[in-house]
Design a protein around this nucleic acid. Structure first.
Lengths: 337, 337
DNA sequence: TTGAAAGCGATACCAA
DNA sequence: TTGGTATCGCTTTCAA
């Protein structure tokens, strides 16, 4: 293994100069720097991680706690894990993955051994056990998602409530006076936090705008096309022609097929908005207006906040809500009057 | 932060004794050990990860390289990541996740900086770029999956070929003389290695046993129920009544529904074996005979081999194939004659 | 602009 | 059975 000493010798300078030249933490003359860089790459020098952790103040590792429970929607969770890893890497950070039971227990372990500089929390539950752990440790922790009680926590998430309101506003503005919210599977309203928040926004906005609202879960399990179909049919019988869908891709397909079977044309006879979904709505059989949930957005912000906490010694805990964005694709009725 | 010095002082011993007492690498008198352990837990002592990495020979971290490509089957990949993390943790190891482009580039980086003790490779492609990297670094690397050219590599995987043969044998023994293999989406035969291996086993065994074999992909994408249905119908028209399914859960459901529509009773009029699938076949609407692909099995073995390489200085590279297991559930015809 | 040297907090060798 | 201490490879302060 090449050490900093060997690089120093090869470049004819001291090790401290090598360190500074490579880290850029102190000005080094142009020529010296060149010599050092040449020597370093010629020798294939890579600083030893353990030594850096010990001597420096940073490990350049973030813990990512994500239970990866089997009953959750794998593609979405995978997208967030991926987005977090990419965001971290942009700033020279690696991800130490804490799953399963280690999602909680590991937090204490890796922070107290100073293995990681900060912790990022995914798949946040309403009564998440990791909230108390985060409050009890001094290592910066950023939640990507919001537990019921975010007191003392730093959180980042899409403003699901605003997303719900936005969807309702669009549909009401389009002339609809009755809306059906095709939501998450019933259990998700207990295990996750964001479905409630979206629903709250939808309910509040519907009340304010004075339109009738029906909320139905999308089935018992994540992919339950049959249940979705029957629920959509019931909605159509009620005369509802406006739908907000907050569910997985399959549920969308089920909705679209029922609408098609009833001869309802999207954007003309019926309106559909897909709210806060991570999959590419363009991959559906029919393009839909969406209020996208972009993992990279939340994860980039989370990483930036974590770094900010690392630099400035302390930053007040705070909930950062990301303003939702509306993307039209013609699936919502355009008012003709 | 509590250091080993503080523990030593509190226990009235030297730091080396503390180190030995806690690691157990040297006998320490019963009483002294008690005092040390008490002091350590009273002070909440956790050894500093960086210091251990530098002084010791181990980082207690494995790199896990898994591209997490968006077009792959998320639940399966998640299951393997989870199984690896759990297997590693059993031996006191944490997982550093290398995704996306870092899946390849990161391997060199984290091994040459000695951040990890070994690397585990997931989602192995036939011409995987990580194979050459693995050959060029001296850190132990274990592939969970087998690239086309495994020369010089250590690999672990289910014996898919044997699984294919096993399935054919069972069906032939049950009296079938024509079999349809409902395989992976066509693209998977290029991007992954195991679909080919299973198919090879099926093809070889069918030839040897002298039965007619039809192989059809299960669609263009992972969940393409429509394509599966039409392919199954075609098979039924050919008179095929025996199916080997190597695909995702949805494909199974599609097959089962077509069989039901044709009034074919499982295990009586028709036979189905689900081969090398990670999902719980018991979760299907109908129980099926399976040759399960158990992530924990491969991942446990991979971790054990990695540790073995770490202990004994060198272990010859080798491909470890896991013998498939057959689980009956009554979906295969029982010979009446 | 550069260098010397004091740590960082463990591990493990060499003694006792 | 226990202790002293060199060492791991880097960061960073203090001098020059």
């Amino acid at each position: 293994m090449t050490t900093i000493h060997e690089v120093a010798e090869a470049a004819g300078v001291s090790i401290s100069t090598v360190s500074y030249a490579l880290s850029g933490k102190r000005p080094v003359s142009e020529e010296t720097r060149r010599r050092i860089e040449d020597a370093a790459s010629a020798l294939g020098y890579t600083p030893d991680a353990g030594a850096r952790m010990l001597a420096g103040r940073r490990t350049h590792i973030f813990a990512l706690t994500e239970p990866l429970r089997a009953d959750t929607h794998a593609p979405t969770h995978m997208a967030f894990v991926l987005a977090t890893a990419i965001a971290a890497r942009k700033h020279g950070y690696d991800i130490l993955l804490l799953t399963d039971e280690q999602a909680s227990e590991g937090m204490r372990r890796v922070t107290s051994s100073r293995l990681v500089d900060a912790t990022l929390v995914l798949d946040v539950a309403p009564d998440d056990a990791r909230a108390d752990i985060a409050r009890s440790i001094r290592t910066p922790t950023v939640f990507i998602g919001i537990p019921d009680d975010p007191t003392g926590l730093t959180c980042v998430d899409l403003d699901f409530e605003a997303a719900g309101r936005l969807a309702v506003d669009r549909l009401v503005n389009a002339g609809h006076d009755a809306i059906t919210l095709l939501g998450q599977p019933a259990v998700a309203y207990h295990t996750s936090n964001f479905p409630r928040r979206l629903r709250r926004g939808v309910v509040d906005a519907a009340n304010e705008r004075g339109v009738r609202l029906e909320t139905v879960p999308s089935g018992e399990v994540a992919t339950d096309a049959g249940a979705v179909r029957s629920r959509v049919k019931a909605a159509l019988e009620r005369g509802d022609r406006a739908f907000i869908v907050h569910a997985v891709a399959d549920a969308h397909e089920a909705l679209l097929s029922v609408l098609a079977e009833h001869g309802l044309r999207l954007g003309i006879d019926a309106s559909v908005i897909s709210a806060a979904t991570t999959f590419e709505a363009s991959a559906l059989s029919t393009a839909l207006d969406t209020i996208p949930l972009v993992p990279a957005q939340s994860c980039d912000l989370a990483v930036e906040i974590a770094l900010r906490h690392l630099e400035k010694k302390s930053t007040a805990p705070e909930v950062h809500l990301i303003t939702p964005e509306y993307r039209s694709a013609g699936s919502v009725h355009t008012r003709a009057d």
